[in-house]
Simulated scan of single mutants.
Amino acid sequence: MDRLIPKLLWIDGSAAALAGSLCLLLSPALAQLHALPQNLLQLIGVVNLLYAAYSFCLAMRASRPRLLITLLVIANSVWAAVCLGMAASFAGTASIFGLAHLVGEAVFVAGLARLEWQWRERLLQAV
């Protein structure tokens, strides 16, 4: 795990960029597969891309203010809660794939928030 800590912000940003790009590019097909509104999937894609930009901006900095790392953790935590809320809201209509996407994203970003909080002091400086 020690080798991954310096790369954590890059991993976070890359995952968000990939998820956001796929949600946007594949939103028509995903809307059918997930039984979720296409505009919701597009919103998820845009949020992921905005988050990726923030994470990449932090990753590229040699010195990272504690407040900006804390904001990253808060953003991940809030997004995890939003994803769970969407899963609960669409539980009656979304397919198992749609629910798995929303819950899976919530679990993934909550895990990132936990790791970023746990290693926040080591993330203050790029290695």
Rank of each mutant, 00 (worst) to 15 (best):
A19D: 07
L84F: 15
S63F: 09
L22M: 13
L25V: 01
A106Y: 07
Q125V: 10
R66C: 07
N39E: 15
A53V: 05
G45I: 07
L124M: 14
L112T: 06
A94P: 10
N39F: 12
R120H: 13
L50M: 12
A75Q: 10
L22N: 07
L36I: 13
S95L: 04
E121N: 08
W79L: 10
L22V: 09
W119K: 04
G98D: 00
A100N: 07
V47G: 01
V73Q: 04
A59D: 02
A35T: 15
K7H: 13
W10S: 03
G45V: 09
L99M: 13
L112D: 06
Q38T: 10
A16M: 07
V73L: 05
W10N: 02
Q32S: 15
L49D: 03
C57D: 13
W117S: 10
A100L: 10
G92A: 13
A16V: 04
F90Y: 15
W117G: 11
M86S: 11
Q38Y: 10
G111P: 05
Q32P: 03
W10T: 04
I5S: 01
V107S: 08
G98N: 03
I44C: 06
N39G: 04
L67I: 13
N76S: 08
V103C: 05
R120W: 06
L24P: 00
I74W: 11
V47S: 12
A29I: 09
G98R: 03
A19C: 07
V78G: 06
I44G: 00
L24T: 04
N39C: 11
G45R: 03
N76K: 01
L67V: 14
N48F: 06
S95W: 00
L41F: 07
C83Y: 15
F90H: 14
A106P: 05
Q125F: 08
A91W: 11
A88M: 14
H101D: 03
D12C: 06
H101F: 15
L8K: 00
M1W: 07
W10H: 07
A59G: 02
L68Y: 12
S14H: 08
N76A: 06
Q118F: 11
C23P: 00
L4P: 02
G20Y: 00
G111S: 08
F90N: 05
A87C: 11
L49Q: 07
L99Q: 08
M1H: 10
L25R: 07
G98E: 02
L40Q: 06
